[in-house]
């Protein structure tokens, strides 16, 4: 079962985790907005249609590679405050190894393969967040 959601709605962690409980092992990653350097607001822009397609392809790839029972990717878009959940990745498999590895794969590849852009506001001034080389390195380890 694959579930991909791109939405402005708050991520319901309990509901997402419960929906994944379909086999022996569930692994998950939750990303929260950091308030580093006085960030007051983080806004996520995305490429409607292409975003959902990219996330769906990643979930399909992970499901095939690790024989997952279920995979969920929920990514929030629009304005968010520090401490709010921005992304949730969850996997379910018969055993922990596959669930944990697939979860790490999904969050690493999501950062480089899906069309999202972060804009942060600090002291009333907005700036686009620069991509990090370390994210590219993390994504390539799964090739």
């Amino acid at each position: 079962m694959i579930r991909v959601v791109v939405s402005t709605a708050v991520i319901d962690l309990a509901a997402e985790l419960a929906a994944l409980e379909r086999d022996g092992a569930v692994a998950s990653f939750t990303g929260l907005v950091r308030g580093d350097d006085g960030v007051a607001t983080l806004e996520l822009e995305h490429y409607p249609g292409a975003t959902e397609a990219a996330l769906g392809q990643l979930a399909e790839a992970a499901s095939a590679r690790w024989s997952l029972t279920a995979a969920t990717i929920v990514h929030r878009v629009g304005p968010m405050a520090p401490g709010e959940r921005i992304v949730f990745v969850g996997t379910c498999a018969p055993h922990r190894g596959a669930a944990l590895e697939a979860c790490a794969f999904l969050i690493d590849r999501l950062k480089t393969d899906a069309p999202f852009w972060k804009r942060e506001t600090v002291n009333g001034a907005a700036r686009w967040v620069e991509a990090r080389d370390s994210d590219d390195v993390a994504a390539t380890r799964w090739e």
Binding site: H46, P115, F116, K118, A131, D135
Partner: peptide, 28 residues
């Protein structure tokens, strides 16, 4: 991206309905 699939800049777009130009992505 050409028709919503990521491509390198030297890719051709012959017959495409949609081409998107953007900065490196920063989601997650």
């Amino acid at each position: 991206a050409v028709d919503q699939a990521f491509v390198p800049l030297d890719a051709t777009f012959a017959g495409a309905r949609e081409v998107a130009i953007f900065p490196p992505v920063t989601g997650g």
